[in-house]
């Protein structure tokens, strides 16, 4: 620790306030993420995802990336989680505990995740053992700085991104539109024959056709 301090670095055993705050918020974020992927209540998973994403926004603030923190709050917490909740609602997700939320290969997944976590943490800690982020000085992610670098160096990707968002908008509309012709085509031949017969009956003789239709519906 003395050597590290002599080399101009703070030590492992003297965490600063920012590090303690980062650690506490990180533990909360990780716990919320774990609950998100393990809870059996689908709506609760979406709400715990809000906690995890909000915790990540706080981590961005601690890393002095203010603009990205507020973008995270706006887009992730504000829109993506709401989209996910609407998706859960539209797919008639069960309220309450659903016993089949987890797949059968849960233990294989747990093994893969634990192995990759161990490998990644080992490599990362080994690689960045003696590396410190200098958070002093002006904030590196304030709105001023972000606007400057975004519109000075990254204008072309920014504009290309707007085209991508337009394509995603059009694609979402096309995918979610009810295509009446194709649904009629995929219906069974029995149903279309009945509908055609009913239509011709009503077309030929309206009075009797209506009687036929009501009789068919009753029977």
């Amino acid at each position: 620790m003395n050597l590290a301090a002599a080399a101009g670095h703070p030590g492992f055993l003297s965490p600063t306030g920012v590090e303690i705050a980062f650690l506490l918020v990180g533990v909360a974020t990780l716990g919320a993420a774990v609950v998100t992927v393990t809870t059996k209540q689908l709506v609760h998973a979406a709400l715990w995802l809000v906690v995890a994403l909000g915790g990540l926004a706080v981590e961005y603030l601690l890393l002095t990336a203010e603009f990205i923190a507020w973008v995270q709050v706006l887009i992730y917490v504000g829109s993506i989680v709401v989209l996910l909740l609407f998706g859960l609602m539209l797919t008639r997700a069960p309220i309450g505990r659903s016993p089949d939320a987890d797949s059968g290969n849960r233990w294989v997944a747990l093994g893969v995740a634990a192995a990759s976590a161990a490998a990644l943490v080992w490599v990362v800690v080994d690689a960045f053992r003696a590396t410190w982020i200098d958070l002093d000085g002006p904030a590196q992610g304030s709105t001023d700085v972000t606007g400057a670098f975004l519109f000075r160096h990254w204008v072309l990707p920014f504009e290309a991104l707007s085209v991508l968002l337009l394509a995603a908008l059009v694609g979402a509309i096309v995918l979610s539109r009810k295509n009446t012709e194709s649904t009629q085509g995929t219906q069974g031949t029995q149903g279309t024959k009945d509908a055609a017969a009913r239509r011709t009956a009503t077309g030929d003789d309206p009075a009797t056709g209506d009687d036929d239709a009501t009789r068919e519906d009753k029977s």
Partner: peptide
């Protein structure tokens, strides 16, 4: 701030998401 804190947190979050993708 030590660089290992955000790097380890990111690795653990990634593996949590990996478990969710495989197990859900």
């Amino acid at each position: 701030m030590h660089l290992a804190y955000p790097a380890v947190l990111a690795a653990l979050l990634f593996c949590t998401g990996l478990y969710g993708v495989l197990a859900r």
